[in-house]
């Protein structure tokens, strides 16, 4: 064996052993995420599935392999209609939040010149999150109620003579409350996307004679779509799963799917049915996230 061959051979072995070390390291690096995934995702989901396939007989859980609970979700009133209603409330919240959030995010991204003002507005968006959700939802009662600020104000201005009862305890007040509470998520998500619009692009458009509206329509809006979609997904999901707003400000028919699940767990002790609803919602959520991922990918502008 020549020296060259020897050197090559040594190198080969050292590469091989380096690879082995690398593999062992990789395994070590993979253990925490895999453990996390198993403990917090796989096992709970498996338990959920296991529970959903059984049934309850006089307070005792009887394991089984029946799809009855899933059939009930889709065929027995009120489960599917309540899921649809929750989705509608979620959608309204997502739409309203985007409408409210966009101008603010736009202003924050393009019109605020000083860093200090930017920080201040940013803070004003975030600060309400320091207050408890309950307090904020409750505040809407005192604003929208028969004796609330809105009604008292309108009455003292002579706009109405009787308190308007349409503001509170219906689906509108639920949409309103949820929009107020979750809008910061939409603001932050849209703002993050608008920040990415290169100023060079706007300057180039201006040099080529485009006016403000055209710049917005042809450059800013298309670039911001993924941010709007991401914000809408977050607000939709949060509103869809909400159970506090319908209880506090909802009307007699504002029951949402999470309220039904809580009832099934607490009042009826029907854990299998609750698990089945949970799995249906998780599946719908996965579908939604895949769809939105695809949509974000499609609408993402590359420079």
């Amino acid at each position: 064996m020549t020296t060259i061959e020897q050197t090559v051979e040594i190198k080969r072995t050292s590469i091989r052993s380096a690879r082995a070390i690398e593999r062992r390291r990789l395994f070590l690096w993979l253990v925490p995420p895999l453990a996390w995934f198993t403990i917090f995702m796989l096992i709970p989901y498996a338990t959920l599935l296991y529970t959903s396939l059984g049934h309850v007989d006089d307070m005792r859980f009887i394991p089984g392999l029946s799809l009855d609970n899933f059939v009930r979700v889709f065929t027995v009133d009120p489960y599917l209609s309540v899921i649809i209603k929750s989705a509608r409330i979620g959608l309204m919240t997502a739409v309203f939040s985007s409408i409210v959030a966009y101008p603010l995010a736009f202003y924050l991204a393009f019109h605020v010149r000083t860093q200090r003002l930017k920080f201040l507005i940013y803070l004003l968006v975030i600060v309400p999150w320091w207050a408890s959700y309950l307090v904020k939802a409750y505040a809407w009662k005192t604003i929208l109620g028969s004796g609330g600020i809105l009604n008292v104000g309108m009455q003292s201005l002579g706009l109405v003579h009787e308190p308007v009862r349409l503001f509170l305890y219906n689906e509108f007040s639920v949409d309103m409350t949820l929009t107020y509470i979750f809008t910061p998520f939409a603001v932050l998500s849209i703002y993050a996307q608008l920040e990415r619009v290169p100023t060079s692009l706007i300057e180039a458009a201006r040099n080529l004679g485009a006016d403000g509206w055209m710049i917005f329509r042809r450059i800013i809006l298309p670039i911001s779509v993924p941010g709007v979609v991401a914000g809408a997904i977050i607000t939709f999901s949060l509103a869809f799963g909400d159970f506090v707003a319908p209880v506090l400000v909802g009307g007699p028919d504002s029951v949402m799917i999470s309220n039904v699940v809580i009832n099934l767990l607490g009042v009826a002790f029907d854990w299998p049915m609750a698990a089945a609803i949970g799995l249906v919602i998780i599946s719908l959520g996965l579908l939604l996230i895949s769809a939105s991922g695809w949509l974000e990918e499609r609408t993402q502008t590359r420079f």
């Binding site: 006089d58 009133d77 009120p78 007699p252 028919d253 099934l264 009042v267 009826a268 029907d270």
Partner: peptide, 19 residues
């Protein structure tokens, strides 16, 4: 109530029904 789940289902149906 032996059939409490059924009672609750009825109650949820009532709540979900349109006014």
């Amino acid at each position: 109530v032996k059939r409490r789940a059924k009672y609750l289902e009825i109650w949820n149906q009532v709540k979900a029904a349109a006014n």
